[in-house]
Design a protein around this nucleic acid. Sequence first.
DNA 1: CCCCCAATTATTTTT
DNA 2: TAATTGGGGG
Length: 740
Amino acid sequence: MLDLDKKNHPILQSLNDAQQQAVAAPNAHRLVLAGAGSGKTRVLVHRIAWLMAEHNISPYGILSVTFTNKAAQEMKLRIEKLRGMPIHGMWVGTFHGLAHRLLRAHHEAAKLPETFQIIDSDDQLRLIKRLMRDTGIDDNKWPPKQVQLFINHCKEEGRRGQHLSGADHYNDIMRQIYISYEAICMRSGLVDFSELLLRSLELLQQNEDIRAHYQQRFSHVLVDEFQDTNTIQYLWLQALCGANSIMMAVGDDDQSIYSWRGAKIENMQRFTRDFSGCETIRLEQNYRSTQTILTAANAVISQNTGRLGKELWTQDGSGDPISLYSAFSEQDEAYYIVSCIKEMLSNAFQYQEMAVLYRSNAQSRVIEERLLESRIPYRIYGGQKFFDRQEIKDALAYLRLIANRNDDAAFERIVNTPTRGIGNTTVMKIRHLSKEQDLSLWETANILIQQSLLSARAQNSLQQFMQLINHLACHTQSATLADQTEFVLKHSLLLDHYKKDRSEKGLSRVENLEELLTAVDQFNLSDSDSDDINTPLSDFLSHVALETGEQQSSEHSDCVSLMTLHAAKGLEFPVVFIVGLEEGLFPHKMSTDQPDGLEEERRLCYVGMTRAMKRLFLSHAESRRMYGSEQFNNPSRFIEEIPSALITNVRAKAKVARPNAYRRSAAPLVHRAKNRYTNQEAGVPGLNLGDRVTHQKFGAGTILNYEGSGDSTRIQVAFDNHGAKWLIASFANLTRSSVG
DNA sequence: CCCCCAATTATTTTT
DNA sequence: TAATTGGGGG
């Protein structure tokens, strides 16, 4: 506990006890177990302010690491806001961004050319494919995607090609490809994402003076989302922390949902072991959700084993119960969601306060269709990033080649884009010689031309291409970035190339290229880290590679958000719908066979539930069209893990509340559903699934399901006024009624 | 070089 | 089912 006068310190005043303990922790390592909505960013920001104010730490001595650019940006902003002035010299950024910074500053010691550029996973895959073709490795037998995973996995574990044993045929092939891949990247001055981290770790490991410099500089290292760190990131942090550095790791083991991407929850325990004197602080008071939502989420996550342990609570009230809807089908589910959205809207919630979360992207479609139909504005998070689009990458490849002629990935991409008569034969020739001579494609192309080793046609085309690049380069040397880009777009004929495509796709590609000009322009204005000595062009290229660029521009309009549960991490919404809570879908069947997989699914559910502030709607569908066939999934086990007292089953209510609107809009689909059921008797002659029936006591309802046969047949009926019930068919005495 | 058809295959994704 | 990918033909 802190002394009273400390508690009244302006930086600590607004914080709860646990938060204060974290913020004002003495000079010792701390693991902060920060539950969802417990104010972890707040703690980090206040901690930094505290260190500067009370420990007299200069911004220069602080290193603050996050995973996403968005988080880094927010951190920076909030620190500046709290201090009331811009911060200089503090390293606040993503793992990759900071690693990049280290490599730029010490490219020589890192054995990288000054002009090195970053490639994304797409470029990486292309390089691997090309290399496999060159070395004659069958890409049917060894899928390039798998090779890519292998390489990245190695790098994430800190292993180089030389370190590998090649124990069996598989490992032998993989090692071979990995080694040639490393060679190509070196020769082309290219660095992939995992390489940024591994290379900068090696830089620190192999250069005592550099390591000592940073260890001395950073007296405090703070890390956000620590549960998402992988092995190399852990080692990287460790390398930056000297004997006198203090580290604060903030994370939540219950929100670890990226183990499939290499994240190691074990790093949390490892941290408390490796960093001596480390104590754990728990932030369990939640400032986001109602107690009902928290109790439900706590109950679900408590099913997991090996947790560090934590229970969320709130000072606020219990709030509304959680709604559960059992839909007939995914269509029905979508109608229900839309009807709830309308209801919430009339309950004074705005569209932008609502989010629909699903396990897999494919689920968004039905919901989109219904939203579109109801003219409800929505926005889908995730999906293709601006700078990942084909046409944008083409344009960037021109810029990259201008910046660095040895960039093989860029060369390969645009040597014949737009088509200029440099076919496969020519490119193959360049590749072969390039491999033989260990020169870049550009250098090789030069040799081929000088020695006239190509057909006259090819020679001519290639020469023109290279002249074009040189021409673009020297004509834009002194121009601004925006002018440079515009010049390139025009003279490369890339814009014309896409303008020829009159389809919708082509149209949007042209639009995107035009948007690129805007992006370039904005970059000039806002500018990046201005503390390196690079050209604006190379600055821009690094920026683009590391910051994938957010969604479209419609950010500020009032829209319902649609996204995967993964994408929802870190966000919050007053009203949250979690749909498709079915066995096989969520938990996904790909992860149900191993216990680890199932627990991660459960954490995902926990993440989803804790996004909700006021209202949480859960739903599952009894039948769902998946991969072209009808699946009958059981309700997700996660539903059962929620105490039933917290849940209201709303199936009947929803139908009664809006019988007309509901029925009318649903009509065509009910019809379609009925067609599917036509030959499927509900275990009783004359009754089919989907039929409308009447019961003496319960009134009208719809047949949902049945089980068993003969006298013991049970039928599930959704009664309009009494919810869903299982009835013994032989006693129920149901009569068919016509569909309204 | 482009177009069409058959085959394949369906989590989650940041940097 | 539907979307993407690869191979073959024009």
